[in-house]
């Protein structure tokens, strides 16, 4: 082989930092972090209470649900799919919680019910996509509607008050700057990060998303992976349902359609490829923080609420533009 190794370079070390900073792909990968820092500087300049202890605390608590839902969304998008039903499943799980609570179930059982509700919805989504061979978009669009409908039916269209000292503490207390709900989101982020990058399952998720043919050729069942990722997304939506009940002290069947779109926005901001195969957990977590900071900051600066969806839209499209440099 002497003649053929001419152009074989020795294993190059990771590119130097200065070189990485000049690469647009680096900025695309870290769009969410750059956006977060940029927004923080702008809002702090416009209103000095932005970085006050109380406001940072409330931003983190407000971000918790979006972070958890976005992590679930990351798994489905990593396989090249999308889960449009996350927010509706969360609402339905919250209503299931409220229903069980009024039936006199113990609090832990109510929580289990909420998570199981999400799990079942996710598993059904995954099974329909994988075994029924229906596109992800169509299945989850259907379950978006189904979950919202079931929530309305179960709650009879009315919110149910849930008075629980434990949930109140859970949503209002914490350790210093970090509320319990935010800490829960961080714990989930750490666990899912390990799952994605340090387990066979995580590798297979990325393989199934990156090249279904190659994954199948090596014996990976892409159907099982699909079912698994939608189940993960469903479980996290169920968990978010509990946080939602804790946050507003009631379970409401009112649909929150912007939440689903925000999870997709957070994932895109986080540098995850919508085509699948490439994902991080840190990215979408930062993406969710960017969106929360944006809404919080605009409110603080006194911009009308009506401008907030517009601002979110602009930020997401800008991030997507930056993503073109990712390759």
């Amino acid at each position: 082989m002497t003649a053929t190794t001419v152009e074989a370079p020795p294993a190059p070390p990771a590119p130097a930092r200065s070189q990485r900073l000049r690469d647009p792909a680096f900025w695309a990968d870290w769009a969410a972090l750059v956006g977060l820092i940029g927004l923080t500087i702008v809002f702090q300049a416009l209103n000095s209470t932005f970085l006050s202890y109380g406001n940072v605390q409330s931003i983190l608590v407000a971000a918790a649900i979006l972070i958890i839902l976005s992590i679930g969304q990351t798994f489905t998008i990593a396989t090249g799919g999308i889960d449009l039903s996350v927010a509706s499943v969360m609402t339905f799980a919250a209503c299931a919680f409220g229903w069980a609570f009024t039936q006199g179930w113990a609090l832990p059982l109510c929580m289990v019910l909420a998570v199981v509700t999400g799990l079942v919805f996710g598993a059904v989504n995954g099974a329909l996509i994988a075994k029924g061979r229906i596109p992800d978009f169509v299945v989850t669009l259907g379950s978006l509607s189904a979950a919202s409908g079931l929530a309305l039916i179960l709650a009879d269209g009315k919110p149910t008050t849930v008075i629980s000292p434990f949930l109140l503490k859970f949503s209002t207390r914490g350790i210093g700057l970090f509320g319990w709900t935010f800490l829960l989101a961080v714990v989930i982020a750490v666990i899912t990060h390990v799952v994605l990058f340090n387990t066979r399952f995580g590798t297979h998720v990325l393989a199934a998303g990156g090249s279904p043919e190659a994954a199948t050729a090596t014996g990976i069942s892409t159907a099982r992976i699909k079912i698994a990722v939608y189940t993960v997304s469903g479980v996290l939506a169920g968990l978010s349902g509990i946080l939602l009940v804790a946050r507003i002290g009631a379970s409401s069947p009112a649909a929150d359609t912007t939440m689903t779109l925000n999870t997709v926005a957070a994932v895109v901001l986080g540098g995850v490829s919508l085509l699948g195969g490439r994902a991080t957990i840190v990215g979408p977590v930062l993406g969710a923080l960017v969106l929360t900071v944006l809404v919080n900051g605009l409110t603080l600066v006194g911009v009308s609420q009506f401008y907030q969806p517009l601002a979110v839209g602009i930020v997401v499209v800008l991030a997507a533009l930056l993503m073109r440099f990712q390759k």
Partner: peptide, 12 residues
Amino acid sequence: NLALVEDLTVWQ
């Protein structure tokens, strides 16, 4: 058709 996953590393 080269059954490799492009976004994974060589060792993966």
